[in-house]
Measured scan of single mutants.
Amino acid sequence: SDPSEDRAPESARVGNIPSSTSALKVPQLKVAESAQGPAAAHTTDTAGYNAMEESVSREKPELTASTERVNKRMSMVVSGLTPEEFMLVYKFARKHHITLTNLITEETTHVVMKTDAEFVCERTLKYFLGIAGGKWVVSYFWVTQSIKERKMLNEHDFEVRGDVVNGRNHQGPKRARESQDRKIFRGLEICCYGPFTNMPTDQLEWMVQLCGASVVKELSSFTLGTGVHPIVVVQPDAWTEDNGFHAIGQMCEAPVVTREWVLDSVALYQCQELDTYLIPQIPHSHY
């Protein structure tokens, strides 16, 4: 159930021909089969995070001529859309010479989310990475209204306002976009420790780096000194050995919190207090 199309920051360009055919990675995205229709094609874990990302398996898109002007500035990904909605975005992107990729990268400028009429969405990996990267996180209605009015409308009017977990109007995407000089995790050293489900560890690490944190791979690698705040992030329900995560405190002095601390902080683009996310640790033995 991992969102495989989000696994690594590679891009698939639509609308320009790469210098070599080997560089072309066409979105071959799968549809989750469901008797209840597209709305039930998501699996949500206890964290309220949509693990099964969206989309559609299609034939290789038709490439435009390399001489045609390509908008190098805009690059989009989509999240939560049905196959039909994805194809509408594809046509919109081609019309406006926008790069459409299946994986979010540093070059991505827009994340197009499936939302309700009030621009509230589910939480997906692309949603988190879009906010963390200060990108435009907009409703699919931006595409449909632009098509209806036959011009590209202003993104401000379609920015995602909230999500089904953290609140319907928290304005996290807007706050992140306007606060890239004040990253929420700066001054923190974060170790993403142990197993994680539904989200590859490297993507979680990239997320906290985008928010200004330094990533530490091992508990023994924390910088011990003033001005640096170490934090260990774990996902308790992913551990097979009972309560192993309670013993992390015996290996390092850092506070240990659940992954929800990261996800909530990123969604709201406000660093949350650790208290409600802390995992009790077995104290050091004193002999």
Rank of each mutant, 00 (worst) to 15 (best):
V120L: 02
C191Y: 11
L100V: 08
P236L: 10
K183A: 14
Y287I: 10
S139Q: 00
E10H: 08
M52C: 13
G225W: 08
M52L: 11
P38F: 03
E54V: 09
N198G: 13
V120M: 06
H286V: 15
V160Q: 00
Y49L: 07
L81G: 04
L219V: 11
Q28F: 08
N102R: 07
V56L: 13
V160E: 00
E253G: 13
E5R: 13
K174A: 04
E122S: 05
P200M: 02
I279M: 08
G134N: 08
K183P: 14
H246V: 08
S20T: 11
L125S: 04
I282Q: 11
R182C: 11
V77S: 02
S4V: 09
P195S: 04
P255R: 08
A238L: 15
A93L: 07
D116T: 05
R13P: 06
R182I: 11
R161S: 10
Q270D: 01
S66L: 06
E241V: 05
Y287G: 12
A267K: 02
V164W: 07
A41S: 11
A132S: 13
V26H: 05
V112T: 03
L63P: 06
R7Q: 09
T21L: 07
K72Q: 09
R186Q: 09
L81I: 07
V120G: 03
G80K: 04
P195I: 12
G249T: 15
Y193Q: 12
N50W: 09
F119K: 04
G194T: 07
G80P: 02
Q272E: 15
E178S: 02
Q235P: 06
D237M: 05
G187K: 14
Q180R: 09
T109I: 00
P200L: 14
H42L: 11
G187L: 02
P195Q: 15
F86V: 10
R58V: 10
Q145S: 12
N154V: 09
P173E: 00
I282N: 05
V215Q: 13
T105K: 05
E53F: 09
Q250R: 10
N243Q: 13
E59S: 09
Y193L: 14
H229G: 12
S179T: 09
V70P: 12
K114P: 01
S34A: 04
W206S: 09
F119L: 14
E218G: 13
S34I: 11
A8P: 13
V266E: 02
E218L: 11
K114M: 06
S285I: 03
A47L: 09
V89C: 07
E53P: 14
D2V: 05
E159R: 01
R186H: 13
K91A: 13
R259K: 05
E85Y: 14
K217Q: 14
E118K: 05
A267R: 03
F128R: 01
A47S: 12
N166I: 12
P173A: 10
M113F: 02
K151S: 14
A93F: 03
Y140I: 02
S139K: 00
S34L: 04
R177S: 01
G212Q: 12
A117K: 11
R7L: 09
E205R: 08
Q28V: 07
T258G: 10
T258C: 15
Q180N: 14
V138L: 11
S4T: 10
V262A: 12
